[in-house]
Structures are given as C-alpha cells and as structure tokens.
Amino acid sequence: MKTIIAALSVAGALAVTATASFAQDVPDAVKARQGQFRIMAINLGILGDMARGKAEYDAEAAQNAADTLVAISGVHQPTLWPEGTDTMSIDGTRAEPALWDNLDEVLSKWSDFGEAAAQLQTVAADGQEAIGPAIGRVGDACKACHDEYRAPE
C-alpha cells in the first residue's frame, strides 16, 4: 500500500512538474521574436488597410507605421533565434529546423526586409497610391522566409 501511495505521489509530482514546465516552456527569445512579428503585422495592417481603401489615408499614421517597421528591421536577430528553439525541440514555435542550417541566408533575407521597409519609409507620406507597391515589396520579403522556414499551423 505504501508503495502504491509512494508511486502515486511520484507520478503526481511528475505530472505537476510536466504541466508547469510545459506552460513555461516558451523561451523569452521565442516570445520576443513572435512579439516583433506582431508589431510588424499591426503596422503593416495600418498601411495595408490604407492602401486597399479600407481605412482613410493619414500621412502621419502611415509615416509612424513605416518608421516602426524600419526600427524593427534594426533589431539584432541572432539574439532571438538561439539553438534549440525550433519545431523539433519545443512547442509554441513554427520555426523549422532548416532555418538554423541556413542562418546566413535567413539573415540576408532579414536584410531584404530592412531594405523594403526603408523604401516604404521614404514614400509613406506621399499618399495612398505610393504605399501599395512598397508594401508589396515588404510582403515579398516576408514570403521569402516563410516559404521554407515557417511550418504550417
């Protein structure tokens, strides 16, 4: 009986530990990189809705959004992509292991995003027609990485 109680409590303790570690398992670096993508999506949304005519064009808001995208492109990426934070190693990420085999290529694609964002920054205040194509170039930069390095949901 004692053995059973001991076994059960060990099992219980393990279950609690497992649950706790699962909940905390997403490393800060992963949360941080996902946060930066969310900031990008929000600001692309401000610009995209103006480009599509879903929101009224506002030069100042457009400029702020483009400036923010440029600022994000300056965040040093290697800090946010430590080894062992791919889909095979942890839950809560869609980053494919292949990303770490091709880090140079991934970083060069991140620079392409920076260039596209900088171009968007120079035209953001020029009116609705100007931002559409510039957002398209940013979208191309997003696709270039998501094509191979982000797993489907």
Partner: peptide, 8 residues
C-alpha cells in the same frame, strides 16, 4: 490580419 503567407 496582415500575417503573411507561408509554406508552398
């Protein structure tokens, strides 16, 4: 939502 397309 201005997420971007991925995969194939």
């Amino acid at each position: 939502d201005y997420d971007s397309v991925g995969g194939h």
